[in-house]
Design a protein around this nucleic acid. Structure first.
Length: 840
RNA sequence: GCCCUCGUGGUGAAAUUGGUAGACACAAAGGACUUAAAAUCCUUGCCCUUUUGGGAGUGCCAGUUCGAGUCUGGCCGAGGGCACCA
């Protein structure tokens, strides 16, 4: 049999895929989007998986008659471009563009049904001009502010990181230990949407619960109240936020953050300085802070207990109270909060129980804080209430006495967007001589990045540039200085899906009609690592854009979200402990693995997600050249469910390639098949099998069970191979075979189209009809059980009644010997499924 | 510490959502074809029985049910998210 030349047919069909008229441009809209890539150099297997999954969905929808939007772009700003440019003495722009060209070429090799006319790149002034417009819109809406705050400073990247970019106290990209630094920064006031961002999660039924939960926890809504404590002998109050106002009678101290304004009273105090030093010694990483011992500084001030006349409780400055949550002060109730318990134990403060699990259990000493349910004790008017009732009552009382107010707090913080880097979108703000800061005129946009920057000196290249920042205010002609910070690259990716709706529109970031037609994204696909950052920011952008233009009728950007798993590969180390690439090792049939260069033994490590640092990567382009794009696509979908990690295996892709070859062989056999006469019964059975396969595949794709769909193709292949010899005429056989191949187009578009062309198929891009009537008449397998144990399976007509079945079982079935001579106590009969005899 | 998810052959996984456990694939062993190899195809896969058969079996222990991989409770293990958030 002739071997199919993958290279030739893939090139041939990719030319046709490039003509957008191949795709349906009518019908109901369907916006299919995969997270766009950062152009780091070459595509990796993670991209292959992501975009192949997306392509299956997009092609599936095209074929089902939808008008599909399936674009691609580049998340092209970012620090690696600067680093690479510095190392290779290039311009970030040139480096980025070169990578884009490479990766575009590679993506095209995969045969994706992308509409390349819509391509956008975030580093292109045509794109970031509109981002600057949006920034100004947001500014005018009061959604942008400038704040002096402690920031997460990455000492390697010399830039500020958002909280979300700090992972275990380290920079998400550099892995450097993050420092605390006070800087003036630009913020998007994402917290203005806290409630909405939380509420609207409820409507996102097409999102994984896991992702919604992560966002919910991140937003972190908590109910409680604020209480004012009067400081004794001082005309001052300390505001305290608590979610447990019910435990107020157990309060034995106040603890206040070191950054709280009250600590200003002690700046000249040597003990305080010592304490401050001690705190800073602990380090600034969240991990270190979380595990650090709780220490305090006794201010010798006292607060009046708001409900116990004459009672005074000491005020401490404490390292475990955070300034940027609540009001930076708490009341300590050691009996019912573990942190307070540790603190009180250390400083010998009273531990007063106010919640008791049982009424009589109040004498034993606590070994740790009790945080469970119970009823109130030692709490005057709250006694005998449960916690919920007590909370309600005390808040009423607090409000009545005007010493506080019920309050809801969010953990979510505003989004710091300033970056002291060159390769990002310039922030369109200017500083005037009178000290005010104003946006530039929209007509001046884009504020372009300069080409001639020095990336080799430290600090912010735009700040260091000789004249870039010098400008004049257009309206007045007065001299002004440009903002030299650039935007966090997460801003770039927070609205690209909107730009895709009208990517070439020059007048505004989006064309209203196009956005209202295409948005929201019907299917968004990407890695779960973006569950919080990117998705939350994008949701914020959509809401902010809607706020700036009431005619936009979309408030959530992504209707359905699918998060795919990672691509993994085993790791290899030589005897010196150096990582080795898979192509540097040889696998022996004995199971041993040897280093190719010197035949030394190689240690195999566990399979981990592919990363350059561990060298467990496989180059997609090499694989495509070797086995064909279809085989690579097929394998990466076949082995695991898309939401789980998949193990890359060379033998797997080889077998995928072999299967496609066999499938092609089969199509040749069918093309050249000799005519046969049809036997009615054989044709019926055949059509039942083909239709049930079609049904299962269609359903599997709908459910994102692409691995299950592929298993169906393997199964039906075997069947079709036998079916060649069935008594079925060529027309019927080919018709059914064509339908099966059409189902393969989303998975392996090149070879499927090639086979269909050989079969002279004229409507290849139309999803075949499934004859449900045939399926309804399908014979079923009736399971026959005795005492719950399966004794036989009967292939019988659908909807047969119990009596008939009982007759068959008692005369012909293998189960009869388990029933005869025994008393049938009960029979459970589930139509078309099972019959279970209970015998004694 | 808190929250969430998941435990099925040597491996990746299926299982119509409470109804034949292990589809499909990888790897392995045996066989066919071949002078041989490659390629291709077939068979096997826990225990007992020569076979027909029978039994055990979805991390562990209990429970609900005619029937549990699927539901409930407890335990053990793995992964993920958050982490001094008051």
């Amino acid at each position: 049999m002739e071997r199919v030349n993958f290279q030739v047919i893939e090139k041939k069909w990719q030319k046709k895929f490039a003509l957008s008229n191949l795709y349906n441009k009518k019908g109901k809209k369907f916006y299919c989007l995969e997270m766009f890539p950062y152009p780091s150099g070459k595509i990796h297997m993670g991209h292959v998986r992501n975009y192949t999954i997306g392509d299956v969905i997009a092609r599936f929808k095209y074929m089902k008659g939808f008008n599909v939007l399936h674009p691609m772009g580049w998340d092209a700003f970012g620090l690696p471009a600067e680093n690479a440019a510095r190392q290779n003495n290039l311009k970030p722009k040139d480096w980025t563009e070169e990578n884009i060209n490479t990766m575009r070429k590679q993506l095209k090799m995969l045969g994706l049904s992308i509409d390349w006319d819509l391509e956008v790149s975030t580093c292109n002034p045509d794109y970031y001009k509109h981002q600057q417009e949006l920034f100004i819109d947001f500014y005018n809406l009061g959604l942008v502010s400038r704040k002096e705050t402690y920031v997460n400073w990455d000492p390697i990247e010399k830039t500020v990181l958002a909280n979300e970019q700090v992972i275990n106290g380290k920079g998400w990209r550099s892995n450097a230990v993050v420092e605390r630094k006070k800087l003036s920064q630009w913020f998007f006031n994402i917290t203005k949407f806290s409630e909405e961002l939380l509420q609207d999660l409820e409507n996102l039924s097409g999102w994984p619960d896991k992702v919604k939960l992560m966002q919910k926890n991140w937003i972190g809504k908590s109910y409680g109240c604020e209480i004012n404590f009067k400081i004794d002998n001082l005309d001052k109050n300390i505001k305290v936020f608590t979610t447990r106002p019910d435990t107020i009678f157990g309060a034995s101290f106040l603890a206040v953050s070191i950054d709280h304004e009250i600590s200003k009273n002690f700046v000249n105090n040597n003990d305080f300085k010592k304490f401050q030093e001690e705190c800073s010694k602990i380090g600034t990483t969240e991990e270190a802070l979380a595990n650090a011992e709780k220490i305090g500084y006794n201010t010798n001030l006292f607060a009046k207990h708001p409900f116990i006349k004459g009672k005074k409780i000491p005020i401490f400055l404490a390292n475990f109270v955070l300034m940027d949550y609540g009001s930076g002060a708490i009341f300590g109730c050691p009996a019912h909060d573990q942190r307070d318990f540790e603190f009180a134990t250390k400083y010998g403060l009273p531990i007063i129980r106010v919640v008791s699990e049982k009424k009589d259990d109040q004498k034993s000493d606590l070994l740790e804080a009790y945080t469970g349910t119970g009823i109130m004790i030692n709490s005057e008017f709250l006694n005998d209430l449960n916690i919920a009732q007590a909370k309600q009552k005390i808040i009423q009382e607090i409000e009545k006495r005007k010493i506080g107010i019920s309050k809801t707090l969010f953990r979510l913080k505003d989004w710091g967007i300033s970056r002291q880097r060159y390769w990002g979108c310039p922030i369109p703000m200017i500083y005037l001589e009178d000290g005010s800061v104003v946006p530039v005129e929209k007509s001046e946009l884009p504020i372009k990045l300069p080409d001639d920057v020095d990336l080799n000196s430290s600090g912010n290249p735009l700040e260091n540039h000789t004249n870039w920042k010098k400008t004049v205010q257009k309206k007045t002609g007065n001299p002004a200085i440009r903002e030299t910070d650039t935007l966090d690259t997460f801003v770039d990716s927070s609205w690209y899906f909107i730009r895709f709706c009208s990517p070439n529109y020059k007048d505004a970031p989006y064309k209203l009609n196009d956005v209202n037609y295409w948005m929201s994204v019907d299917q968004y696909i990407g890695g779960v690592e973006h569950a919080i950052l990117h998705l939350l920011y994008s949701r914020f952008f959509m809401k902010a854009i809607k706020l700036s233009n009431k005619k936009v009728n979309c408030s959530e950007p992504f209707k359905n979200l699918f998060t795919q798993g990672m691509v993994c590969h085993e790791t290899y180390k030589d005897s010196n402990g150096n990582w080795l690439y898979p192509e540097e090792v040889d696998k022996q049939s004995s199971g041993k693995v040897l280093k190719k260069s010197d035949k030394s033994e190689v240690k195999i490590g566990p399979s981990e997600s592919m990363s350059k640092s561990k060298k467990n990567t496989v180059d997609p382009e090499t694989m495509i050249n070797q086995y064909g794009a279809d085989a690579v696509r097929w394998f990466i979908l076949s082995d695991s469910p898309p939401e789980k990690d998949v193990q890359w295996s060379d033998t797997g892709v080889i077998s995928a390639s072999k299967f496609l070859q066999k499938f092609w062989n089969l199509s040749q056999l069918i093309v050249n098949r000799k005519e046969k006469k049809t036997l009615k019964k054989e044709l019926e059975d055949f059509e039942i099998k083909i239709n049930s396969t079609k049904f299962k595949i269609d359903k599997a794709i709908n459910n994102f069970q692409l691995n299950v769909a592929i298993a169906q193709f393997y199964e039906v292949y075997k069947y079709l191979n036998d079916a060649i010899d069935f008594q079925i005429d060529n027309k019927k056989l080919k018709e059914n075979f064509k339908d099966i191949i059409k189902l393969m187009i989303p998975f392996t578009p090149h070879i499927a189209h090639e086979c269909l062309a050989n079969l002279k198929c004229i409507d290849a891009n139309k999803w075949p009809n499934i004859n449900k009537k045939i399926l309804e008449n399908l014979a079923i397998n009736m399971v026959v059980q005795v005492n719950g144990k399966t004794r036989d399976v009967l292939n019988i007509n659908r909807d047969m009644n119990e009596k008939e079945i009982d007759k068959i079982i008692k005369t012909k079935s293998k189960a009869q010997k388990h029933i005869v001579d025994k008393k049938v106590v009960k029979t459970i009969y589930i139509k078309n499924k099972i019959i279970n005899y209970i015998v004694k």
